[in-house]
Design a protein around this nucleic acid. Structure first.
Lengths: 276, 276
DNA sequence: TTTGGCCCTGACGCAAGGTCAACCTCCCAC
DNA sequence: GTGGGAGGTTGACCTTGCGTCAGGGCCAAA
């Protein structure tokens, strides 16, 4: 007669595993000796080896019992099922490895490399850290929602940055946002910005700035994030509005006040509609 | 402000996941509204997306917190570590799939295909089911302990079966074991068997039958399993011993009684020593 | 007024055991 | 006879990343 340790060693499993199988009802509880120790016969070794063979092949314990007594058909079906599961698990890990390979510390964490490059370019141009961070968060939100459109967007952005006036626009913007909201220079910056915007609209067409085909809730979310990140932005937006420009992520001309009622600049209520 | 469901939907995770991250301290608990509902700002979406990015790449939650704030070196080291883990997991599943492909229902469950073939051959020869089962269990034990030696053993066995006298030996044995232990024909079978054994020893050499280089504990275990499976075997072994043959898995001439004391036929005490 | 849809907390379940804790027993050496 | 070490016992909590109840609250629309 064998003790649990001997049984386990013959079958190549741990003692804990044997007890686990008892608890799961996979292996019948043997007799106990006068000390209460389990005592096994050689048949238990064979049974345990058969169980172990299945579990080593990835059969879940719950299915092991049925499979030990299954006919050929049932067995083959179960095996095919388990094989599919294993294959799916392998593919999942492979996908994870690919994701993992694309990860970088810090800024680039939730961003594709082209966005990281774009942010680096902004820094290179001397754009303030605060504005770069706000940009980054916007891109994080965008990349999460529509990753397939990021490349196209980035290309457009880089093209714009190639124009020194747009680069200048960013620098001006960054400087404006570094002021305290009540700094008198903010008004000057707003003048400059409004002038930039107007010039851009004239040169590139009235739709150039507002050509942001994102879902309104996303725009609202990105605006909200920007306003949280950039304390001076709220004041700046007010000032810009007085100068004929409204919005943030999507900049537009202030529409003529033909309709009654106050136009809420950032309708937070619409924020509450996700894309499910 | 966002509800938990909106936050979750923006970040592409489940509500349950968000609460889980709160419980784990990965995502800070936000303010509550007058109903006790959590209310999130847009920054929480960004944070959650960053967490999600890591977990989707296979980073365990426990490491996610550190990685969010890690420097390049630490990050790269952790990523390498996790990548190794994923690779190991993939290899494990691949090995399982290979195991799985080799599985068959019933007999062949814990046995390599060549053993299954050998057992089928025994059945073909008309060897009784009971003996085949006993053989099978012996092979299960053997294959579990020394899988690399199974092929060689099977080759030898098949070679032996090619000799019609050995095939006949098996048939005789099988018939003997199908009798009740006290069946008078058992003695006749024992005579036949002893005659077979003696002839074999003469023809193939005295060591042919006993040339079983297995560890004694394994032999004892296999003997024990055979005796449990074959109720008539115990009596048959006694009768064979009277006729000059002892053992089962490893058959030997009864040694001359030079030493005093009774020779225990199956020292169950030695069964208690596994291979650890 | 009911119904539906969101939210809350708390707790169990899963796969396959690992790892204590607290205790017992046997065997060997001193 | 006593101490140590290597076995054994049960029981219960820990792991991962959530899913899924159970049981209940709130509000708005029909």
């Amino acid at each position: 007669m064998l003790t649990i340790g001997e049984l386990a060693s013959y079958a190549g499993v741990s003692v804990r595993t044997v007890r686990h199988y008892h608890a799961k009802g996979l292996l019948p509880e043997p007799e106990r000796d006068h000390l209460g120790y389990r005592r096994y016969d050689a048949g238990a070794v064979v049974e345990l080896i058969r169980i172990r063979t299945l579990t080593r092949a990835g059969v879940p314990l719950a299915r092991t019992r049925e499979l030990l007594r299954a006919g050929e058909e049932e067995f083959a079906a179960a095996v095919a099922d388990i094989d599919r599961r294993l294959e799916a698990e392998i593919r999942q890990r492979q996908r994870r490895r690919e994701h993992l390979a694309g990860l970088t510390a810090g800024d680039g964490l939730a961003l594709p490399p082209e966005v990281a490059g774009y942010l680096a370019r902004l820094r290179e141009l001397g754009v303030g850290e605060r504005l770069v961070r706000a940009e980054r968060d916007g891109w994080v939100l965008l990349a999460a929602h529509a990753p397939e459109r990021v490349a196209e967007w980035i290309a457009r952005k880089r093209e714009q940055l190639a124009d020194p006036r747009l680069a200048g626009f960013y620098l001006t913007l960054g400087r404006a946002l570094d002021h305290a909201p009540d700094d008198p220079r903010t008004a000057e910056r707003a003048d400059e910005l409004a002038a930039w915007l107007t010039r851009l609209a004239e040169e590139k067409g009235e739709d150039y700035l507002g050509d942001v085909d994102l879902e309104p809730p996303l725009i609202t979310l990105m605006d909200a994030r920007a306003l949280d990140t950039l304390p001076a932005a709220r004041r700046l937006i007010e000032l810009l509005r007085e100068r004929g420009w409204t919005g943030w992520t999507k900049l537009e001309r202030v529409p003529p006040p033909t309709q009654r009622g106050v136009c809420e600049p950032f309708p937070t209520s619409s924020l509450r509609k996700g894309w499910s």
